[in-house]
Computed example of a mutant assay.
Amino acid sequence: MATFLYARVSTTEQTIEHQQAQAEAAGFTFDHIIADKGVSGVSVPMRDRPEGKRLFDMLRAGDTLVVRWVDRLGRNYKDVTETIKAFLERGVVVRTIINGMLFDGSTKDPMQMAVRDALIAFMAATAEAQAEATKEAQRAGIAHAKTAKEDVYRGRKPSFTREQVATVRDLLSKQTQIAEVSRVTGLSRQTVYRIKDDPEGTEKALAIWANA
């Protein structure tokens, strides 16, 4: 029985090393670390990713798969739910670092199965909804930035990076308290609230200052 860490990063999210460090800080040790870099969780299904396919080939009954959260498996509802179902049916235990969730396919109790499957569905839907909200905010922010006169409307340089914004949104989507988000990202609580309450303004600031 082996323990696997699966990590995935797109061009704007956390690094593979950060995900590994989070997992190790939570007490996990790994026999295998599988990572897809620069791969979209929205448009590229798990089985179509180079390392995702390898993970499917390697996992066996009794193994444990650890992910930072289900959005590392993907940000498409259908893909995430089908992926986790396939792993559970194979006898793999799936665990998340954030919120310490554990999904085990061994139970035969119908009520436990129903609760487990409903929770997986909710988390997968949240991952897709977050991706859609982020894309919409980015489109709106970029549109505003294109119409701004650079010298007049650039304003103060933002105190946050795109990676920090992605981390803030990721943690908030999981109902993490503002104080904890502030601690993890190193941003002030006021800045975290600004990112939370004004997604379009956040994206506009990032877009305007991208090449400054």
Rank of each mutant, 00 (worst) to 15 (best):
H32C: 08
Q164T: 01
T147S: 13
T15Q: 12
D197Y: 01
K196P: 02
L88W: 11
N211L: 05
V181E: 09
D109G: 00
A23T: 04
E13T: 14
V94Y: 09
E203I: 01
K204Y: 00
T12E: 15
R189F: 04
A124T: 04
Q138K: 12
D151W: 12
Q175M: 11
R183I: 05
S106E: 07
K135L: 14
T11R: 11
V92M: 14
R154H: 03
K174P: 03
R194Y: 02
A2S: 15
A207M: 03
E51K: 15
A143V: 04
G41E: 09
E82Q: 14
I120V: 15
E200Q: 11
E150Y: 06
L171R: 09
T147L: 13
A124D: 10
A2L: 14
A61K: 14
G38V: 04
D57F: 03
F28Q: 04
T202P: 01
D109T: 01
L102Y: 02
W209E: 01
R162W: 00
R154G: 00
K174G: 03
D109I: 04
T83F: 15
Y77K: 11
F103H: 06
V168M: 12
N211A: 05
A114D: 05
L5W: 14
R68M: 07
K85H: 14
P50S: 08
F103I: 07
D170N: 13
F87V: 08
G186P: 13
N99A: 10
A25C: 05
A26W: 08
V44P: 00
R54T: 09
R54G: 03
E51W: 06
I16E: 11
A212Y: 05
F56Q: 10
A179S: 14
A26K: 11
V93A: 10
V93R: 14
Q177G: 10
Q20S: 08
Q164D: 05
I208A: 01
R54Y: 00
V44Q: 12
A25L: 10
D104F: 02
A131V: 05
G74D: 09
V168H: 05
D48V: 02
D57N: 11
R169Q: 13
V168Q: 08
L206E: 00
P110I: 01
N76G: 15
E89T: 12
A143W: 01
R95A: 07
E203S: 00
M113S: 03
L119R: 12
A210R: 13
H18M: 13
A61F: 06
L102D: 03
L65Q: 15
T202W: 00
E13W: 03
M123N: 06
A210F: 07
A207S: 13
N99P: 01
A21D: 15
A131Q: 12
R90Q: 13
S188E: 07
